[in-house]
Design a protein around this nucleic acid. Structure first.
Length: 266
DNA sequence: AGTCACCTGATT
DNA sequence: AATCAGGTGACT
């Protein structure tokens, strides 16, 4: 599930709950998720430190700790991070925060990861990420310049974390639909009005999604059903386009599904 | 630039 | 039994 909006909602939801808490103990139930770092490293380096902040960078979660260390968590496809939840079969790592408080990383597929770095190393690890689409650095000018430099198909460009940080399969497809851009179109062949529309669509789609994700995250069950976000194209192959009525198509790009409207996206 | 491997669970 | 999944890094 998690793309930028869900990760953002996770951080916002957790910040007031875990900031300032001290990590009393670390339990790594699945060594897989700390790989290639040994689980003992996380245990040793995190235990006893205090949580200074929790922030998002792209789809990464960064938990800054006292003493110049940071935990980086990536939820990948099926990870989730919640406070004061009972551990389950899907729990891979959990942190005791004292007074029976906890921070629990669940991930049924175990594709996600939990690493600990010195603050400088954390910076290096995240250095390759492109601009934050919801920050001031994501200007039209920068987007235009980056687009002109790339021959990638538009959908793959949007999902490339080095180009824009945080978009995944759903919101990339939704932004392209909203801007009327053919997902297979090479980025450097897009011209100004369309490119500006795409820039705006990215920001608008993500802003809306962050709002509904924040609501969904505050629900007891997590993100699950309570979602207020209804995709216009994602997952709707064969169904009529909400704008023109033509059938939504599904194609494959980079080994993943792309959904788009052949009428609206040229 | 394209394909695969990493994992597991849900759906066909 | 086979296919699919909202992500990414390491291969060719």
């Amino acid at each position: 599930m998690p793309e930028l909006p869900e990760v953002e909602a996770t951080c916002r939801g957790l910040a007031p709950v875990i900031t300032g808490k001290k990590i009393a103990a670390v339990h790594v139930l699945r060594a897989l998720v700390t790989r290639p770092q040994p689980p003992a490293r996380l245990r040793k380096l995190a235990t006893g430190r205090r949580i200074g902040s929790i922030e998002r960078r792209g789809k990464n979660i960064l938990i800054q700790l006292s003493g110049g260390y940071a935990i980086r968590i990536h939820l990948r496809m099926t990870g989730s991070l919640r406070a004061n939840q009972p551990i389950s079969a899907a729990t891979r790592v959990w942190f005791e925060l004292g007074r029976s408080r906890s921070l629990v990383f669940d991930d049924p597929r175990a594709l996600g990861c939990v690493h600990i770095y010195s603050t400088e190393d954390a910076g290096r690890v995240l250095a390759d990420l492109g601009p934050e689409p919801l920050a001031a650095e994501f200007t039209r000018e920068r987007f235009l310049a980056d687009a002109n430099r790339s021959r990638q198909p538009a959908k793959l460009f949007l999902m490339d974390q080095k180009q824009v940080a945080g978009l995944g399969n759903i919101y990339a497809a939704e932004a392209l639909f909203r801007a009327g851009v053919d997902p297979t179109r090479p980025m450097n062949r897009l011209r100004w009005p369309r490119l500006e529309a795409l820039h705006e669509a990215i920001v608008a789609v993500l802003r809306e999604a962050v709002k509904s994700a924040a609501v969904a995250y505050s629900q007891p069950g997590g993100f699950q059903e309570a979602e207020g976000f209804h995709p216009a194209v994602y997952g709707r192959a064969g169904q009529p386009c909400i704008a023109c009525g033509r059938k939504i198509r599904r194609i494959e790009q980079g080994g993943r599904s792309t959904y788009y409207c052949p009428g609206c996206q040229k």
